[in-house]
Computed example of a mutant assay.
Amino acid sequence: MDNEYLVKASVDELTQGFLFDEKKNGYICLVCNQVFEDGVIYPFENKLYEARKAIRVHIQAEHTSMFLYLIDLDKRYTGLTETQKELLQCLHMGLSDKEIVQKQKGGSPSTIRNHRFKLREKEKQAKIFLAIMNSLKKHLDKNDDELISIHKGATMVDDRYVITKDEEKKVLETYFKNGLDGPLSTFPSKEKRKIIVLRHLLKRFKKNEIYTEKEINETIKPVYDDFVTIRRYFIEYGFMERSKDGSQYWLKD
Rank of each mutant, 00 (worst) to 15 (best):
I230N: 02
L48A: 12
F20A: 07
K194T: 07
F205C: 04
F187P: 07
S189T: 14
F239V: 10
H200D: 06
E22Q: 14
H58P: 02
G94V: 01
R120Q: 14
V171R: 04
D166P: 00
D2I: 10
L6D: 02
K122H: 11
L147I: 00
E213P: 04
D21R: 03
D144H: 14
R232L: 09
W250V: 07
K221D: 09
R120L: 12
D158L: 01
F187T: 05
M133V: 12
L251I: 15
S189K: 15
E62H: 12
T229W: 02
V197L: 00
E173T: 11
H92Q: 15
T83R: 15
F205Q: 06
D225C: 03
R76I: 05
M1G: 12
K206T: 11
E167K: 00
I150L: 09
D141E: 14
G106F: 01
T164Y: 08
G182E: 04
Y249I: 00
T229L: 15
A54F: 01
K98S: 11
K206S: 13
I128L: 09
M156T: 09
K24R: 14
E123H: 11
H115D: 09
D145C: 02
N217P: 01
E50L: 13
G26Y: 06
L172T: 03
L180D: 01
N33K: 03
D72T: 03
S135Q: 14
S185I: 04
D141P: 02
H115V: 01
K24V: 11
L30C: 01
L88S: 03
K206L: 13
E123K: 15
A131F: 04
C90H: 13
C90N: 13
E146G: 05
E22G: 05
S189C: 06
E236W: 07
Y77V: 10
L73S: 04
Y224G: 12
R204V: 02
P43E: 00
K177I: 10
D21C: 10
Q34P: 05
G26D: 08
E50P: 10
S65G: 11
C90F: 08
T78Y: 04
D2S: 13
E22V: 12
S243W: 02
E62Y: 12
F44E: 05
M133W: 07
S149M: 08
K152Q: 14
V171P: 05
E45H: 11
